[in-house]
Design a protein around this nucleic acid. Structure first.
Lengths: 192, 192
DNA sequence: TTTTTTTTAGAACATATATTCTTTACAGGT
DNA sequence: ACCTGTAAAGAATATATGTTCTAAAAAAAA
């Protein structure tokens, strides 16, 4: 009977994330992808067909296994506390690396419709999750009743992207952590 | 006497911006850069030496001749009105294209120190200009005296990056314009 | 007009890179 | 222990791409 594949698909997809984060899509060459994943060329093309479809799989995996862990805070629906936890973990997640989704949007969004779709979906999800948290926060009296929830959610979504870009530049995490507090502090109703 | 060069350097740098915006740095191939600029290969390498140093020149040009026109609103120091004008023009500037600086940071920031420097410089400038506007706005009584200027400037800087990313995805400009109003409205003191 | 010098246009080159192919090694059933 | 079929490693291939080179054209001065 045939030998069984030794590689673990999830592990490979996770390893590839770092390669794409470091060099971008076009900058990440197959030689490095192969070398830094527990993979071999033949298996790669049997499994994925091309570098492009591989990227799509990596992006899906990135959302489902990495970003989800961070976003789940927003979906636990504990109001303002959830938002705080999300940002703390997000800063940790992107520090020194950035966000693969944001990077893919800015590098490939113009040419690659699929990347555009994935990106739109991700930003929509963020926006909706923030709205959920803010509604909960309002019902808990954590934020002013006259807060415009939709536009606040939009602000928060923008922060997330701002962090993703800044994280590439800022080696230090402190700066981003301070920024988080500066951004979220004013939301709380006792600050008004 | 020798013939004079026919190409206009500024025009070429401006034309190249679009190519890099559409395909990113590695995705923009020399053939297209040559074809879409009033240029020829020999002149290109005589003038710039390499694609990489060409990018640096394009980034400088992008800042000095394109972004500056938008940022100058912030440097005219009219308080809140300047911020409004800036965002309106910025949205117009990035719509459907994104921002070359942000794109370069996310694609090349990890590998290219010079791009990192240029990016940091740009974000610092934004932050400082916002602080200037906010201080003026406070002295004019346009915003609450207990507004934390530094953290508000940080928020605005984040918005800018959020817009740059969104602009790649959003074909419509309306969405971004509405977002601007949603973001800036709450700043005004009469909304508190 | 002729000469001179440089630009243009694009062919040529060398390297890089995605993809395919070949060979060797190995797991598992008989 | 011996096949057998698949995986692993990496050589080979074809194409893409950044850079250089060549020959023709064109502008300016004599």
């Amino acid at each position: 009977m045939p030998r069984k594949a030794q590689y673990n698909l999830d592990a490979i997809l996770s390893q590839a994330i770092d390669v794409f984060l470091e060099h971008g899509y076009h900058g990440a060459i197959m030689d490095e992808i192969i070398a830094r994943t527990e993979f071999n060329r033949r298996g790669f093309y049997l499994e994925f067909g091309s570098k492009q479809t591989f990227l799509y799989m990596v992006l899906e995996h990135y959302q489902n296994h990495h970003l989800s862990k961070v976003i789940k805070h927003l979906e636990s629906n504990q109001g303002l506390e959830s938002i705080n936890q999300f940002f703390n973990q997000y800063v940790e997640h992107v520090k020194g690396k950035g966000c693969l989704l944001i990077n893919s949007i800015t590098e490939l969004g113009f040419d690659d419709q699929k990347v555009r779709e994935i990106g739109r979906h991700y930003l929509d999800r963020l926006q909706i999750d923030f709205i959920g948290c803010l509604e909960k926060a309002m019902s808990l009296g954590q934020i002013h009743t006259n807060t415009n929830i939709e536009s606040t959610a939009l602000q928060l979504t923008s922060y997330v992207q701002g962090f993703a870009v800044n994280a590439v530049l800022a080696g230090e995490t402190d700066e981003l952590q301070l920024a988080t507090q500066a951004l979220l502090g004013p939301l709380q109703s006792n600050n008004h």
